[in-house]
């Protein structure tokens, strides 16, 4: 499983992992979107959104990417099913998000936080981190 929900008293703690940076970022996006909408629509008209982010390191880049996707989701009332990465380095990300319009969200995620987040490769060589979402 690319993402797993762990216990947290007040908020939402999630572990995400991926073989490549692209898989890793996609897993985090999928995990967050699944919290927003447990059952995303199967058939939908594809909505495309462009994101460009620059951050000081990979951990911040991931959190900033999730927060950007979250803002777009709430403003446009959309859920993002897939991210196509045009550029993904340690500090720069350019991607196209593919989404579907939805009527409402299952959960109100206020933000992805930097708290506990630390993107690093584990012993299997996979990228991994824990993310706390404020809900």
């Amino acid at each position: 499983m690319p993402y797993e929900i762990l216990e947290h008293t007040a908020d939402l703690r999630m572990r995400v992992a991926g073989k490549t940076k692209e898989d890793f970022f996609s897993a985090a996006l999928e995990g967050m979107m699944r919290v927003l909408a447990e059952k995303p629509p199967k058939f939908f008209e594809k909505k495309l959104r462009q994101v460009k982010i620059e951050s000081p390191d990979l951990t911040s880049l991931l959190i900033d990417f999730l927060n950007e996707a979250l803002s777009l989701a709430y403003i446009n009332k959309e859920i993002y099913i897939k991210a196509v990465f045009k550029k993904l380095s340690e500090t720069i990300l350019e991607a196209e998000l593919e989404g579907a319009a939805i009527d409402g969200f299952d959960e109100d995620i206020k933000a992805a936080t930097y708290h506990e987040a630390s993107a690093a490769q584990n012993e299997k060589g996979e990228w991994e981190t824990v993310i706390i979402f404020d809900i």
């Binding site: 000081p56 900033d64 206020k110 936080t113 930097y114 708290h115 987040a117």
Partner: peptide, 26 residues
Amino acid sequence: HQIATDYIKIMMMSLIKYKINLPDRE
């Protein structure tokens, strides 16, 4: 929520710029 997100990022960037280490970026 967005005001907090925007300014936590701005302040985190300035911590990195001024090389201030904190036990938690938040």
